[in-house]
Amino acid sequence: MGPLVKAEFRKIFTTGVWWGMLIPVAILSFFASWAGTALGAVQEIQDSVGQPLPLGLLTVSMSTNFCTVFAVLFGALSYSSEHNNKNITTTYLTGNPRGAVMGAKLISYANLGLLYGLVNLVLASLGALLGAGLAGFGNPADWFAVGAAGLLSMMLWTLLGVGLGAIITNPPLVIVTVLVYKFFELVLAPFLATSEWSELAGYLPGAAASGIVGNIAVPVFIRAVAGDNEQNVPAEAFEFLHFTFGGTYGQPWWASVLTFAGYAAVAVVGGWLLSRRRDIT
């Protein structure tokens, strides 16, 4: 397995896909987090409370959820491009069985997903620091929790991309599929949230993924505002913050992790099963 993992890292770093997708992550993370600290409605809450609030945690959550699209595209394009360029033939012939190849890819791309998450966390935190100051991060333990959740989210999105790339081996098609679904969920989620099936909204792939970070950051912010009166905060306040910064009201972060990890696992297993049967000649 070790040589296969080394080969995967070599293939990753000899192409431009990994840094091509990482550049927009760095730029968007910083500017989205910086701009998020100036959001009018949240600033009004801070002014009314009369003390600094952990706004930076919210903007780190928002930046993470904006940037995950580049992680999933990176994973999907890297795998599907190997099929498109016929490089996968040599990989499968020298790395038999194919399950070992998939395992090596998951290990290597999980590490690159963590790199994406780390770049996002650092740049988003810098943007929040510029906009909200050091007081905007609250308790250091909360920042570490939000940061760790962001790393996990990026890694799972990257692995989901690997699975999609194994299923859809045409690079343009996998890009279109990811972007179309992202748009579809943006339309579907508000509809579900206001229907009799509102409980299902948090279990859509994108909503579950955003909850990995948002369902930690938003409750921390609410506790900072309400203190001991957290139970008296209306649901509308939670819903507004979740809509803006990610997550779903009433859903714990660990449920979001399990839900999205399930989607990623289904994609990976589906890609593995198809790759076992796919003709590479």
Rank of each mutant, 00 (worst) to 15 (best):
G136W: 08
F137A: 03
F137L: 03
N139A: 11
N139T: 11
N139L: 07
N139W: 07
D142R: 12
D142N: 15
D142M: 11
F144R: 13
A145I: 04
A145M: 11
V146R: 12
V146S: 10
V146K: 08
V146A: 08
G147C: 09
G147F: 11
G147Y: 11
A148M: 11
A148V: 12
A149T: 10
A149L: 10
A149V: 08
A149Q: 04
G150M: 06
L151H: 09
S153V: 12
S153M: 14
S153C: 13
S153T: 13
M154T: 05
M154Y: 05
M155A: 13
M155Q: 12
L156V: 15
L156D: 02
L156Y: 05
W157M: 10
W157I: 02
W157P: 02
T158V: 10
T158D: 04
L159I: 10
L159V: 06
L160S: 15
V162L: 07
V162H: 02
G163P: 03
G163I: 01
G165A: 07
A166F: 11
A166I: 03
A166C: 05
A166Q: 09
I167W: 03
I167E: 00
I168R: 00
T169C: 01
N170K: 07
N170P: 04
P171T: 05
P171E: 03
P172A: 04
P172H: 06
P172L: 03
L173S: 11
L173N: 09
V174W: 00
V174L: 00
V174K: 01
I175S: 00
I175R: 00
V176E: 00
T177P: 03
T177I: 07
T177F: 11
V178C: 04
V178Q: 05
V178E: 00
L179H: 01
Y181C: 01
K182S: 13
K182H: 11
K182V: 09
F183M: 14
F184C: 07
F184G: 13
L186K: 12
L186A: 13
L186I: 12
L186Y: 15
V187K: 14
L188C: 05
A189S: 12
A189R: 14
P190E: 13
P190T: 06
F191C: 04
F191H: 10
F191A: 15
L192K: 14
L192N: 10
L192P: 07
L192W: 12
A193T: 13
T194Q: 12
T194E: 10
S195C: 09
E196K: 15
E196R: 14
S198F: 15
S198M: 11
S198A: 15
S198T: 14
S198Q: 14
S198V: 14
S198K: 15
E199C: 01
L200I: 15
L200R: 11
L200S: 09
L200N: 04
L200V: 15
A201L: 02
A201F: 04
A201I: 05
G202L: 03
Y203L: 08
Y203H: 14
L204V: 06
L204N: 06
P205G: 04
G206M: 06
A207R: 12
A208S: 13
A208P: 02
S210Y: 10
S210E: 14
G211Q: 03
G211N: 02
G211H: 03
G214F: 07
G214K: 05
G214P: 09
G214R: 08
I216Q: 12
A217P: 06
A217Q: 10
V218Q: 09
P219S: 06
